[in-house]
Amino acid sequence: MNQQYSIAGLHLPDVNQEEKLHRILSSALEKTMGDESKISETFLPYWNAEYFNLDQVKIFRESTPAEQSSILQLCNLGILEEAYFIEKAGVGYMAKMVLFAETTEERMLYALFGADEVSHLSQIKRFLPTPKLSNNPFLNMLEDVVESDDKTVLLFVLQVVLEGWGLTHYRSIAQSCQHPQLSSVIRGFLQDESRHHATGVTLFEKISSSKLSQDIVDILAIFLQMVQLGPQSVVTAIEKVKGDLSKVEKINIFAELDTENHSGSRLKLLRSLMHLPNTINIVENLQNKGCFQPLKANQCVL
């Protein structure tokens, strides 16, 4: 993939704030959103240890205050950076769907949805230091899916499943966020995301099950495996601060994080999102592959 011309645009650079293009964008955003100046103070952690279940993890509780702070900061940045790059990919995706539209109204909707994603991206960016694109398996998958030219894949994977999943995720992080302004920003996304999801469902339900691509099953199997593997990013954050962990230590951490229940509830939600009148075969195929079965702690160590 040519990163310079990818639809998701995760690697697109930002222009310098002094450049004229940036000033024009800021003026346009201010006209539609009001004054959205960058948050001046650093308020990490936005989410506390309890949100990540770190208070249940022995190695975290026994760490020094400085180590605990570093682990929490990594977990917090993980949430914000993932949200930033998801919204960044959303700008490109909506632009692509404008071109794929089959009616005037569909084209108009996707053009409006693109403006939603621009607004979300701009607002999330105010709460981040310089966003860094790490080797995140979910973002790698997202980038590949956005490049698909199969509209059934785009609608079902991105708008039906991932936008539906995103609604629950944004609601959760908004409720648990300790920063009132950031919490309010994320809550403001919910109505937009709900509209995006509902549009995906409406358009997808018109498609005959015989026209659905096998790629949908293959892509969702990869995504569901990521969910099955539990909170890998939390364990990675602990290891970055504490140093290399043994397999036994990692298994203990996953057990303390209650990974089987953590993943099980998410897999149940995802199964319900996928269950539409024309997707019975897709859900059964994934069920037969064991994709909705959460893994035990000792199965989550990569």
Rank of each mutant, 00 (worst) to 15 (best):
I124T: 08
P13M: 09
S122G: 02
L286N: 08
I71A: 03
K58Q: 13
M97Q: 12
F60T: 03
K58P: 05
L276P: 04
M94T: 07
G290K: 03
N298V: 05
Q175V: 02
E117T: 06
Q214D: 10
S213P: 11
L212K: 15
K289D: 11
E50W: 10
A28R: 13
Q123P: 06
L220K: 01
L21E: 11
S27N: 12
I7Y: 11
E239I: 04
T152V: 04
N278V: 00
L74E: 13
V157Y: 12
N135W: 03
A174E: 00
H120D: 07
L128I: 04
E82W: 05
N261I: 00
P65T: 01
R107F: 00
E205Q: 09
N2L: 11
F100Q: 13
E30T: 06
R171W: 09
M141E: 10
D258P: 03
Q228N: 14
H197N: 15
E81W: 09
C75I: 08
V234P: 07
R126F: 07
Q228G: 10
P131L: 06
D144V: 08
I79L: 15
I59F: 06
I124Y: 10
A297F: 09
H197I: 01
S194D: 06
L270E: 05
Q293R: 13
Q123W: 08
N135E: 11
E36A: 07
T32H: 07
L276A: 07
M1E: 11
V15W: 14
I253N: 04
N76D: 15
I59W: 05
K31Q: 07
L10I: 04
L154A: 04
V185G: 03
N76G: 12
K247I: 14
L224N: 05
E205Y: 00
P65D: 03
E117R: 14
I39Y: 10
V235W: 05
D116M: 11
L224H: 04
L142G: 02
L154Q: 09
E102R: 15
L25N: 09
A66M: 03
N140Q: 15
N2S: 11
M274P: 14
V248A: 14
P13V: 03
K289T: 00
V153H: 05
E117K: 14
I253C: 02
G264V: 01
Q232E: 09
L72S: 05
L286S: 01
Q287K: 14
G34W: 07
Q73M: 00
D192F: 02
K38C: 09
F156L: 06
Q56Y: 08
